[in-house]
Write a protein that binds this DNA or RNA. Structure first.
Lengths: 183, 183
DNA sequence: TTAACTACACCGTCTGGACGGTATAGTTAT
DNA sequence: ATAACTATACCGTCCAGACGGTGTAGTTAA
């Protein structure tokens, strides 16, 4: 009568996490199924049970980004400091699930994965709209690109990231710039 | 005695161009030696005659970027409109040799190619210095990142690029933003 | 209430193909 | 005569994916 629920697929999430980590750390090229399975502590067969092929793994990763981006967008819209400031702040790599997911998908887009690129375009447009409401349409792109540039550069400094203090000073500079653009 | 000079190496440049094109269009993963040779209209043996292995091909590509970036930096320093405005303008994907070279190397950096990443850091720092002299150190990073963000986004719109008019309008907006930051 | 059965969640091995690279013998342009 | 190729065959490695299992939690029927 009671719970006749099937066993929980613990491996599934482990695999998705491992795939993201590998994308971030070593790029798409080296994020092979074997490497993902090993990192996840799962057999290759187990991996393929959940994701019949690599494309399915990618699809699931994109779906996760969609979900997290949706949540982030809601937080951005509700941020008391304003959408623009929130955006700049959150463009600093801070190792949140959203950050990891975003950078991971960046790696896929880089490898010319069309679907990944499309998701980016949508998310970027949503960010742009919110920033436009905050600082005015004329300056929105300037702010959006400042944040993107920050992200873009932070990505190269792989691993545990560099000097946190320097990074913070950088964000403060950018926030000052945003204030000057506002109007 | 005279004219017994060897034939000119026409294939070499063709191979380098083809490698760049493939990096941009399909990413590092798909830029295989076979694909490069085919695109260049050269036999695989001919490719390997000039570049004994893939790493040599990459090295030559990085050296080309160094050369082009050096020229670009000189032009930026001498630009009558100022370094910052020049930088923003040139961040628009315009299919120049420098642009192609830069994006191609981006693809390599993405795949965690350390050498490629180092070159980027150097070029970025040089740009930052010039922009700082133009708009002041406090706002330099804001401008640099605006340009980077523009580049970052333009990269996703692969192929023959989108609407040129929209892009131009975008650059004008960014230039207006730069003027507001100046001081 | 327990043996038989089912469905799910995995594991480990194998194969076919692609890719980087080697080798070699011949061809073209200067 | 020699550098600059073409053409083709081949090797070792790696990878995606297929495949045939195994263990176990829940279900059913006597």
């Amino acid at each position: 009568m009671m719970g006749s629920m099937p066993r929980k697929p613990v491996a599934r999430d482990a695999v998705l996490d491992a795939f993201e980590e590998l994308l971030i750390d070593v790029g798409e090229r080296a994020a092979t199924l074997d490497a993902v399975a090993k990192r996840a502590g799962v057999s290759k067969g187990g991996l393929l049970y959940h994701f019949p092929n690599k494309e399915a793994l990618i699809t699931a990763t994109l779906e996760r980004l969609d979900r997290l981006a949706g949540e982030d967008l809601a937080a951005m819209a509700a941020a008391p400091e304003g959408a623009a400031a929130y955006f700049i702040r959150s463009s600093l790599w801070s190792d949140t699930p959203m950050d990891r997911s975003f950078v991971a998908v960046t790696r896929l887009a880089e490898v010319a994965h069309e679907d990944a690129r499309r998701r980016f375009a949508v998310i970027q447009q949503q960010w742009l709209d919110l920033i436009g409401k905050d600082v005015g349409a004329a300056m929105a792109k300037a702010v959006l690109y400042m944040g993107d540039g920050l992200y873009f550069n932070a990505m190269w400094e792989s691993g545990p990231s560099g000097n946190a203090g320097d990074r913070q000073a950088e964000v403060d500079e950018l926030l000052a710039a945003v204030e000057r653009l506002r109007g």
